[in-house]
Design a protein around this nucleic acid. Structure first.
Lengths: 342, 342
DNA sequence: TTTAGCACTCTCAATATCAGAGTGCTAAAA
DNA sequence: TTTTAGCACTCTGATATTGAGAGTGCTAAA
């Protein structure tokens, strides 16, 4: 158990290190923050914190740097959660409500705001149904045997696909089929639809097959866009000027399969509203050894959910990141809820 | 006018420099390529090329580095266009034809293949109608007064938007309205639609207004996604290890407004099938001073077109980049043509 | 016209030096 | 018992020095 003063000093060291990215020494700390104690006292406390594994010295006779353990303690126990300033929140909300009601646009905006506010790279995944349920189906003749199938799922997801029919079909007949199938399958999941095949035949049957295929695809986690922004923010950080570390981290964001793996293993079991903090890859992701992520889910629990978060250097400002992520997540949840109808 | 030998040496210098990223000296060149002449001869020729502005010396008594002018000469006159190996082309085609017929998926795949083949960052913009023409309109009730409007334009573009009506309307009535409006406006551009307002009233009128708004948005160049890939490829290049240069270049790709400006000023007046090469920003784009881009348009001329290309260091392999860009552009053109019906 | 020879230049890596910042310990002060 | 002043010691990072290596341009011979 740390004394109050030790907690205080740990906080200060972390704060100072986030600011300067350089090991922080006792004398410096006392001067910077006008502490009421001598550097020697600070040194003693620092020695204790070092023994406990919360700080470490890059070399004998250098200042102290927070360890990952130190950050975890800080984030878990010392960081008092703050909210974004009222003005900022209003400004951000305003931007969202000004946007056309277009999911795509929301995602982009969310990524952009996250990146700016947290001054880090940001990622946002589109809201994703727990199990896609059909809301509406449309078949649109393009030319000859080509047909564009547009599938709307509950929650507002849209999936399109170009089909080639065995023989040309009039638009009118296509519309009828679409209407019939919509009627029949509305509100059903892919699995439920699969069970009620056999009662169908001809064009309808083929269409239903395609619908199932599309909905299964929609169900798979790896579908859908990931919106990134602010990648250059993380490149600007001094610890990434060596660039090879930066590459590894950015590759994680670029390589969708890696990213999905990460998201599915961490954030999927989190609650809506809860913010998860991943410090230094938590030993599991080598690419993130130099990075931290702050992640949250948003959406309507059990219906559609998405993930969003930021990625920055370990010495990122967790306070700012967490409050931003939390706010944007709740904002997006509201937007989604509203678009579902309320 | 250069002698054949000078052209040959320029080519070799460029080749060697792309390979090693270090200034290339006469002796080294002779050894590497088993030239039938002495280093002194090569030195003399290099001196001529330097006088002509095609090579330069970073410092007295260092090897030679190609200037931008040198690259331009090379790309314009010396580079004999090659095609990707047959096997590679078949493999890539195969990947495309295996994909669901989903524009989104194609774009992603194109970006990915470009990045891999050219070993550079890639960008692909979705095909964009010269002037969007309405193909189909759908109105889908979500709940209460919320209505999802789905608008399909000729060329397969899909735009969605969430509307709030003044009062609840039944799905049935919405479908009727949608069908009516589709009937009326099919094949029309936003401008043409605007001219025929006044003949309408009630819900129809509102819907038409929204359609016009959406189609105008679709017309504006800045709409639509830009697909990026392989950003980490360019970070891996030694000239960007200093990272601040890399940041500037990547910012161009991230900041959509900058990117659109670039694309609109360069590639929009290019022909389909033509590949444009931008070397060192051509003096106009400061962010690209250290970079080159190889760009092309694809699509059906006069109907829908998109842009794609790669971004790499100035010393990228232009041969590989150009042949890849050309191939993918023609492939995407085929895909688009096919999806338009043929 | 080409090439061998040579003096000269410039970079880059390795090495040495040194001020500055920080530490831990001890002993005195509170 | 806790805090602090003092001090010897350590390590880094900036700066300067040096020397090998690579490359050049020029001249004169082939």
């Amino acid at each position: 158990m740390l004394t109050e003063r030790q907690k205080f000093i740990l906080t200060l060291v972390i704060h100072e290190y986030t600011r300067t990215a350089a090991p922080v020494g006792s004398k410096n700390l006392v001067e910077q923050y006008n502490l009421e104690m001598s550097p020697a006292t600070v040194r003693n406390e620092m020695a204790v914190l070092t023994d406990l594994g919360y700080l470490r010295q890059p070399h004998t006779s250098a200042g102290r740097v927070p360890t990952e353990e130190g950050y975890r303690y800080f984030v878990g126990r010392l960081l008092r959660e703050t909210e974004l300033p009222d003005a900022t929140r209003r400004m951000i909300s305003h931007q969202f409500y000004q946007t056309r009601h277009d999911i795509d646009e929301w995602m982009r905006l969310a990524a952009s705001v996250l990146a700016h506010q947290a001054r880090a790279a940001s990622l946002v995944t589109a809201p994703h149904p727990e199990r896609a349920r059909l809301k509406h189906l449309e078949l649109i003749s393009t030319r000859g045997r080509q047909v564009l199938m547009v599938l709307v799922t509950a929650g507002g997801g849209i999936h399109q696909r170009l089909l080639t029919l065995p023989e040309p079909v009039q638009q009118e007949q296509l519309s009828e089929t679409a209407a019939r199938v919509t009627q029949l399958l509305q509100g059903k999941t892919a699995d439920e639809v699969t069970q009620m095949r056999g009662q169908l035949h001809g064009l309808d049957e083929d269409v239903v097959d395609w619908v199932v295929e599309d909905m299964n695809q929609a169900d798979s986690l790896t579908s859908g866009e990931v919106y990134l922004d602010g990648l250059t923010n993380v490149l600007a950080e001094p610890e990434f000027s060596a660039s090879s570390e930066a590459r590894r981290a950015l590759r994680l964001l670029e390589e969708r399969s890696l990213l999905y793996d990460l998201l599915s293993r961490t954030v999927l079991n989190a609650n809506i509203g809860g913010v998860q903090v991943l410090i230094g890859g938590e030993g599991a992701w080598d690419e993130l050894r130099q990075c931290s992520m702050v992640l949250a889910r948003y959406g309507a629990p059990g219906v559609v959910t998405g993930t969003l978060g930021v990625l920055g250097p370990i010495r990122m400002s967790y306070g700012r990141a967490i409050s931003t992520v939390r706010f944007i997540a709740s904002l997006l949840s509201d937007m989604v809820a509203e678009s579902l109808g309320d």
